Structures are given as C-alpha cells and as structure tokens.
Measured scan of single mutants.
Amino acid sequence: RELRDAFREFDTNGDGRISVGELRAALKALLGERLSQREVDEILQDVDLNGDGLVDFEEFVRMMS
C-alpha cells in the first residue's frame, strides 16, 4: 500500500506509468538536487525491464526493493 501511494506521487499525470520527466522531478524532490539527463537515463535503463521507456508499477516495486 505504501509503495502504491509512492507510485501515485511519482506518476503525476495518473496514467499508471512514470515517464522520464516524472522520474526526473521525483528524484529531484527526493534528493534535493537535479540529476543530469544522463544520470536519469541510466536509472531508467536499469529500472525499465520491458524497454518501453516508462516505469510501470511492477518495475517501480522492484526499483524500491
């Protein structure tokens, strides 16, 4: 339940997936600093298991585990 709530916080447009822009904004909020595009792309590449360029809830749960 906590992970579902956190996912909703990251998924600002409510489409059920976290985009690169949403991921960048969430990481900035969490870390208090802006990451480079390359750093965000590397994180997305590690987390995006199905290669669609987005983070779905299952991928998010794995990222947070």
Score class of each variant (00 low, 15 high):
9 E>P: 02
17 R>N: 07
11 D>V: 00
8 R>G: 05
3 L>P: 02
46 D>T: 13
8 R>V: 06
16 G>C: 02
2 E>G: 07
11 D>R: 00
51 G>V: 12
43 I>K: 13
33 E>F: 08
21 G>F: 14
21 G>W: 03
53 G>D: 09
44 L>K: 13
13 N>F: 00
43 I>A: 15
59 E>M: 13
19 S>W: 01
34 R>T: 12
62 R>D: 14
3 L>F: 08
2 E>Y: 04
20 V>H: 10
12 T>I: 04
25 A>N: 08
38 R>E: 05
42 E>M: 07
47 V>K: 09
18 I>N: 00
13 N>A: 02
10 F>V: 10
3 L>Y: 07
21 G>P: 13
51 G>E: 15
13 N>G: 01
9 E>C: 04
30 L>R: 14
34 R>S: 11
23 L>A: 15
31 L>I: 09
27 L>I: 14
36 S>F: 09
10 F>I: 10
19 S>A: 03
4 R>K: 14
60 F>R: 00
9 E>V: 10
55 V>N: 01
21 G>N: 09
48 D>R: 15
43 I>S: 14
64 M>A: 15
38 R>N: 14
37 Q>V: 11
5 D>W: 02
3 L>K: 01
42 E>T: 03
42 E>F: 04
1 R>M: 15
61 V>M: 04
59 E>H: 06
25 A>C: 15
60 F>W: 11
54 L>F: 05
41 D>N: 02
12 T>L: 04
7 F>T: 01
47 V>H: 13
3 L>N: 03
40 V>R: 15
62 R>V: 09
20 V>T: 07
33 E>I: 09
30 L>D: 08
62 R>E: 04
23 L>S: 05
62 R>C: 08
20 V>F: 12
14 G>Q: 12
47 V>M: 04
15 D>Y: 10
1 R>W: 08
26 A>T: 04
34 R>D: 15
3 L>M: 12
51 G>H: 09
7 F>K: 00
54 L>P: 04
8 R>N: 11
51 G>M: 13
60 F>L: 05
7 F>C: 03
43 I>T: 14
14 G>A: 01
38 R>G: 12
58 E>G: 11
1 R>T: 11
58 E>P: 11
61 V>H: 12
31 L>G: 14
29 A>L: 10
61 V>R: 10
10 F>T: 07
14 G>V: 01
4 R>Y: 02
38 R>K: 01
37 Q>C: 02
52 D>A: 12
14 G>M: 04
10 F>N: 06
55 V>F: 13
23 L>Q: 02
10 F>R: 08
62 R>H: 05
12 T>R: 06
9 E>A: 06
4 R>G: 05
17 R>T: 05
15 D>E: 02
40 V>C: 09
16 G>P: 00
45 Q>A: 09
9 E>D: 12
10 F>Q: 15
36 S>C: 03
8 R>W: 04
4 R>C: 05
43 I>F: 04
13 N>H: 01
35 L>E: 08
26 A>Q: 02
42 E>G: 09
60 F>S: 04
16 G>K: 06
52 D>P: 07
16 G>Y: 01
38 R>S: 12
18 I>R: 00
50 N>I: 02
3 L>C: 00
64 M>L: 11
27 L>D: 02
6 A>K: 15
3 L>E: 04
37 Q>S: 08
19 S>G: 10
19 S>L: 02
44 L>P: 04
63 M>R: 03
64 M>E: 15
59 E>A: 09
36 S>W: 06
59 E>G: 06
61 V>A: 10
33 E>R: 10
61 V>I: 07
64 M>S: 15
64 M>F: 14
58 E>Y: 03
20 V>P: 15
45 Q>I: 11
41 D>R: 07
55 V>M: 03
58 E>L: 11
33 E>A: 12
40 V>M: 13
34 R>E: 15
50 N>E: 06
63 M>W: 11
64 M>H: 14
51 G>W: 04
2 E>I: 01
65 S>F: 06
54 L>E: 09
2 E>P: 05
20 V>E: 14
46 D>Y: 02
20 V>I: 03
30 L>W: 05
5 D>G: 04
41 D>I: 06
1 R>S: 08
62 R>Q: 07
17 R>G: 13
14 G>R: 11
35 L>F: 05
13 N>M: 00
23 L>E: 01
52 D>C: 08
16 G>Q: 05
7 F>P: 00
29 A>Q: 10
56 D>P: 12
13 N>E: 02
35 L>G: 14
17 R>V: 07
31 L>K: 15
26 A>F: 10
16 G>N: 15
17 R>F: 11
47 V>P: 03
5 D>A: 05
13 N>D: 11
55 V>D: 00
9 E>T: 13
51 G>R: 09
60 F>A: 02
4 R>T: 07
38 R>Q: 05
13 N>L: 00
23 L>G: 06
54 L>H: 04
28 K>S: 11
2 E>W: 03
18 I>M: 14
8 R>K: 09
16 G>H: 00
28 K>Q: 04
53 G>E: 06
3 L>A: 04
65 S>T: 07
44 L>S: 03
32 G>W: 04
28 K>D: 14
51 G>S: 15
20 V>M: 14
8 R>P: 01
55 V>S: 03
17 R>K: 12
2 E>Q: 08
51 G>K: 12
4 R>W: 03
1 R>A: 08
40 V>D: 13
54 L>N: 13
6 A>I: 08
62 R>K: 10
31 L>R: 10
29 A>C: 04
25 A>G: 12
62 R>S: 09
13 N>W: 00
14 G>T: 02
30 L>E: 09
7 F>A: 00
60 F>G: 04
1 R>V: 09
64 M>R: 15
5 D>I: 05
41 D>Q: 03
36 S>I: 12
27 L>H: 09
47 V>N: 05
5 D>V: 06
31 L>E: 14
11 D>M: 00
53 G>F: 03
51 G>Q: 11
61 V>S: 15
63 M>F: 09
56 D>R: 09
30 L>H: 11
21 G>R: 06
9 E>S: 08
38 R>C: 09
30 L>G: 10
59 E>F: 07
55 V>P: 00
56 D>S: 14
25 A>T: 10
5 D>L: 04
16 G>V: 00
2 E>R: 08
61 V>G: 11
40 V>Y: 08
46 D>Q: 07
49 L>S: 15
22 E>K: 03
43 I>M: 11
51 G>A: 13
22 E>W: 00
6 A>S: 11
54 L>T: 12
23 L>D: 01
41 D>L: 04
53 G>K: 08
28 K>A: 15
48 D>N: 15
38 R>L: 10
16 G>W: 02
59 E>D: 03
51 G>L: 13
32 G>V: 03
19 S>F: 02
23 L>V: 08
6 A>G: 03
9 E>K: 15
7 F>I: 01
52 D>S: 07
7 F>G: 00
21 G>E: 15
47 V>T: 10
61 V>Y: 11
52 D>E: 13
14 G>S: 06
52 D>R: 07
21 G>K: 06
45 Q>V: 08
28 K>R: 08
18 I>Y: 01
19 S>Y: 00
36 S>M: 09
32 G>A: 09
23 L>R: 01
62 R>Y: 06
16 G>L: 01
15 D>G: 08
10 F>P: 00
32 G>Y: 04
17 R>Y: 11
52 D>M: 06
65 S>P: 06
7 F>V: 00
48 D>S: 15
11 D>N: 01
58 E>F: 03
50 N>Y: 03
22 E>R: 02
25 A>K: 02
3 L>I: 09
19 S>P: 03
48 D>P: 05
38 R>M: 08
50 N>F: 03
63 M>C: 10
55 V>G: 00
9 E>W: 03
5 D>C: 06
53 G>R: 03
4 R>I: 08
31 L>T: 14
31 L>V: 10
40 V>K: 10
44 L>E: 08
17 R>L: 13
29 A>H: 07
21 G>Q: 12
44 L>T: 12
18 I>S: 01
42 E>C: 09
41 D>E: 09
9 E>F: 04
42 E>V: 08
37 Q>T: 12
55 V>E: 00
8 R>I: 07
22 E>Q: 03
22 E>S: 02
59 E>T: 14
33 E>W: 15
65 S>Y: 11
26 A>L: 14
43 I>Q: 14
18 I>Q: 13
28 K>P: 14
